[in-house]
Each structure stands twice: as C-alpha cells, then as structure tokens.
C-alpha cells in the first residue's frame, strides 16, 4: 500500500483511501468542505511523488506545475509526500463590510492583505481562524484587493450562520484560491451570452455580467435568475437599471411558483429559457446554483446546440459535514 508522508510522519493508506481521509484519520488538521474535488478548501502541495490527474482536474496550470492538488479526491498509486500550501497561496484578509442584499442573503466584502489575480465568477475558499472553510463565488472586485461575496443563510450552516449573525467588520479570515472556470473570457465580443442561475448562483453571474460589460462585450447578454418565490430574488433594481443603460442586456426573474407579476416569469427556469431560446448554437452559457438544475440545464443547452466547451457551469455543493 502506498504511504502519505506529512512532515516527519508517514501514514499508510487504507484501500482506496484519499489523502484527505488518511490525514484526518491520523489526526492531522486540514481544512476541507465539499469532499468532492470542487471547492478547493483542501488544496495541498505535493513535494515528492506523482499526483493522479483527477486530483488536479480544473486547477490552473501554474498551480499544477507547483504540485498543488485536491486532497479529497487524491488516491495516490505510489508514495506521496504532501505539505500545506506555502504562504503565497493563502492570503489573509479583513472583513470590511457586511450588508443585506435580501433577508436571507448578505453581501460580504473582504480586503485581502495582498491583491492577486482573480476573475469575477471564480471562487475562493474562506477559512475562519478555527479552520472552518467554505467556498464562495466572487461576485465582483470593487477594488483590486477587495472581493465581494453573496452569502445565503443556510439552515444550521456554520459559516453562513457566523457571517449572518456573529461576524463583525474588522474580523480576520484567510482566503485561498481562486478556483473555477466560470469567468468571462475576452476575444469573442459579439457572441450571445446566456447567464442563468438560481439563488446565490446569481453571485458569479453578477460578476461575469459586469466583467463582460467592462471588457466591451457587444453581443446580447441574457440574464435569468431563478428563485422559488419573490423573497429569493435580489439585486433586481440593479439588474433592471443595467438593462436601461445597456440595450443589449436583458434580465428575467423566474419564480417557480406564485401569481403572475409583470416582468417576471412563472415556471421552471429551464422551460422559460428554452421556450425563449430554443436554438443555442454559437452561444456561450454561464450556469450557477442548485446542482440538479445546473446539471439538467447544461444537458438541455447542449442538446439545443450550445457547444460543450461553451457551457461553463458552477454547481453549488453543500459541505459534507
């Protein structure tokens, strides 16, 4: 059986055990959240040995080159020496604002001690001093070193509960990342864009939308925001006002249930989108939010003609604990 070396210690792996599970089983304190290779909280650096490709899927090339990998999906075939990430990947930050976007969604602004290269729509892990880690999409970069997040209060959610009820301006956290490929790429300014999300899936889309406009995107941009009922919508006024100043932007709130409201569609978000745009060849789509809706939309947009490489999806996973 291969072993994991961690500093001076050596831990034999059991069966198909991941590096994360082996470390946790041996009492090593490692941050993690989704346990499915997505959120990036458990990223470590390989010092010796070969990292399976699966444990580096989706990481940016410069990170792969440095041996960064996701411990929760890393099942090594041979011995692997791993270590926490160097100081350069973890950047300390200060909470500078906690505002309400809706009764259940907070806008959290943090200022990083050092600015680094991040695109709106990517995600960042926030790590509390006690080690609790969760990933959030970057909804915007109001300043080079300031990140905007939208945090929905999850029932019994430890990080969201803290950010909603207990955290204060001035509190310190650690940030790790970015990860994710759900961001605007300049170079095809006339392509039609579809931005669709549910709940705080709006956060990366809000980031992508403003980034696209900042980059001078000329093609139509259609934003669909789904929620179960009216209370789940937010940033409505801001989005409507963007459609006033930018003729090529449309905004459609979609509510799953309720009575018809002018300017709002009632029904399932996929039906509303495909009903309006049945043919999507040549489009680029950004999808975020509820994982089942994202998965289903992705397939339907693909069948409607969108290229698989032009569908960028960010399914929000809940933490495993």
């Amino acid at each position: 059986m291969p072993v994991v070396r961690w500093g001076e210690q050596t831990f034999p792996l059991h069966g198909n055990e991941t590096v994360l599970d082996a470390l946790l089983r041996n009492g090593v304190s490692v941050s993690y959240a989704c346990k499915s290779g997505s959120c990036g909280s458990c990223m470590l650096q390989a010092r010796e040995g070969t990292v399976p490709a699966r444990a580096q899927a989706g990481l940016k090339d410069s990170w792969k080159a440095q041996g960064y990998f996701l411990a929760c999906v890393c099942v090594p075939e041979a011995d692997l020496a791993a270590a926490p990430l160097g100081a350069e990947a973890r950047i300390r930050a200060t909470i500078i604002s906690l505002g309400n976007l809706s009764p259940s969604v907070k806008q959290v602004l943090v200022r990083r001690d050092v600015a680094s290269d991040i695109r709106p729509g990517q995600y960042i892990a926030i790590i509390r001093p006690d080690g609790l880690a969760r990933s959030y999409s970057v909804a915007g970069l109001p300043e080079e070193d300031v990140l905007e997040f939208h945090v929905r209060l999850i029932p019994n959610g430890r990080m969201s509960g803290w950010l909603h009820n207990d955290a204060c301006v001035g509190d310190r956290v650690t940030t790790l990342g970015p990860s994710g490929e759900c961001f605007y790429v300049p170079g095809n300014e006339d392509q039609p864009l579809l931005l669709a999300g549910t709940g705080t899936g709006l956060a990366p889309l809000w980031g992508v939308l403003r980034d696209a406009l900042r980059c001078g995107h000329r093609g139509p941009i259609h934003v669909f925001h789904g929620a179960v009922h009216q209370g789940g919508l937010y940033l409505c006024d801001e989005l409507r006002s963007l459609t006033q100043t930018h003729e090529h932007v449309t905004y459609t709130p979609v509510l799953l249930t309720g009575d018809p409201i002018p300017g709002t569609e009632i029904g399932a978000i996929d039906k509303v989108i495909l009903g309006r745009f049945p043919k999507l060849a040549g489009w680029r789509a950004y999808l975020a939010g509820d994982p089942d809706i994202v998965r289903s939309l992705k397939m339907q947009l693909f069948l409607a003609g969108a290229g698989s490489r032009d569908i960028l999806a960010d399914a929000f996973l809940h933490s495993a604990d």
Partner: peptide
C-alpha cells in the same frame, strides 16, 4: 475532433 464529439454525442443522446 471537438466538433465531431459534440455533434455525435447529441445524436446518440436523442
């Protein structure tokens, strides 16, 4: 290859 992959996958799915 990318285009052929997308197009053939759409065909088998339907």
């Amino acid at each position: 290859v990318n285009l052929a992959v997308d197009n053939s996958y759409r065909k088998v799915l339907t």
